[in-house]
Computed example of a mutant assay.
Amino acid sequence: MSERRWSIGELARASGVTVRTLHHYDRIGLVSPGERTPAGHRRYVEADVRRLYRVRTLCGMGLSLDEVAVVLRNAADDPGSLRGLLTAQLTDLEARAARIEESAQRLRGLLARLAEAVMPEPEQFLAALEPMSVDTGRYLSAGQLETITGRAAKLGGGAIETLKTEWLELFSRLRQHLLDGTPVDDPAVQELVARWRATAAAFHPGGSRFEAATTALWEDNRAGLGRELDERVGWSGPGGAAEVVDYLRKARAAGEDIPEEKDE
């Protein structure tokens, strides 16, 4: 039987990855169409589909696109290599499923108490809340925690909730630009970066020193924090939180390189 081919539109529809994302993968050399038709149209072949699966899986496990490129540089396209990747993905998914089931069990306990017209104990609510939160305390130093909690106390609960809402909106819009393959220096992306900086400045004082500390925190704990953020905001599939943060960091760097317009 002859090998199947896919146009970029066909592959996008079949995989759930946008055409712009596939173009972006092609530009950076991650996944490129392996053949051309006699008329010159580019077509993806079966090996390209397997490579796309590797890319999406590794991204879903918390690797940046640069890290994915390094992993795939010498990766063989054979059953043994794919078996290792699938095993790692399955282990990751099973760990997530275990955490979800733990949360579900705690919620069932709350519902069972309410079904008996009995108010659950405060400890039950706290136990149910714990897995829903990103436990940044595990990653921050005592000084960093003191700075953040002190700032939160000064801002007040209402301001904190407003900032959280703004953060989630910006994060979601950046994610869509990432999935669409929007260049990081695009004006629409840079406008979101400016809003992000304003939000971060309101919540995280301390200037460049604090920002450097949080950057180091992210680099040291990227995979774990990315997974916790995904679970917190309910994201799955392409465009995980870790990828969005990497995209944001590249957009911020690109913005620093864009020259300011001068009045004539």
Rank of each mutant, 00 (worst) to 15 (best):
S2W: 06
E3D: 05
R5A: 00
W6Q: 03
W6I: 02
S7N: 09
I8V: 12
T18I: 04
H24V: 04
R27S: 15
G29S: 11
L30Q: 04
V31A: 02
V31P: 10
V31I: 09
P33I: 11
P33V: 07
G34D: 12
R36I: 11
T37G: 07
A39G: 14
H41N: 10
R43I: 10
Y44C: 04
A47C: 14
L52I: 01
R54I: 01
R54N: 00
T57E: 03
M61S: 09
G62M: 01
S64L: 06
D66Y: 11
D66Q: 10
V70F: 09
V71E: 00
L72S: 02
R73N: 07
D77T: 00
D78W: 02
P79H: 00
R83T: 09
R83A: 10
A88R: 01
L90I: 07
T91M: 13
L93P: 02
A95Q: 12
A95T: 11
R99G: 05
R99T: 15
I100Y: 14
R106T: 06
R108I: 10
G109F: 05
A115K: 08
V118Q: 15
V118D: 15
M119T: 07
P122E: 03
E123G: 14
E123D: 15
F125W: 13
A128R: 04
L129W: 13
E130R: 14
P131S: 03
M132N: 07
S133H: 05
A142F: 02
L145G: 06
L145H: 06
E146W: 01
T147N: 02
A153M: 12
K154T: 14
L155A: 04
L155P: 09
G156E: 05
G158W: 10
G158E: 15
L163M: 10
L163S: 05
E166D: 12
E169D: 15
L170V: 08
S172C: 14
S172Y: 13
R175T: 13
L179A: 07
P187R: 09
A188H: 11
Q190L: 15
E191S: 15
L192G: 15
T199I: 14
A200L: 15
A202L: 11
H204T: 07
P205A: 09
S208L: 12
R209F: 06
F210W: 03
T215W: 13
A216E: 08
G224L: 07
R227F: 04
E228S: 09
L229I: 03
D230M: 06
V233G: 07
G234W: 10
G239F: 00
V245C: 07
K250V: 10
A254D: 09
A254C: 13
E256R: 04
E261N: 08
K262H: 09
D263H: 06
E264C: 12
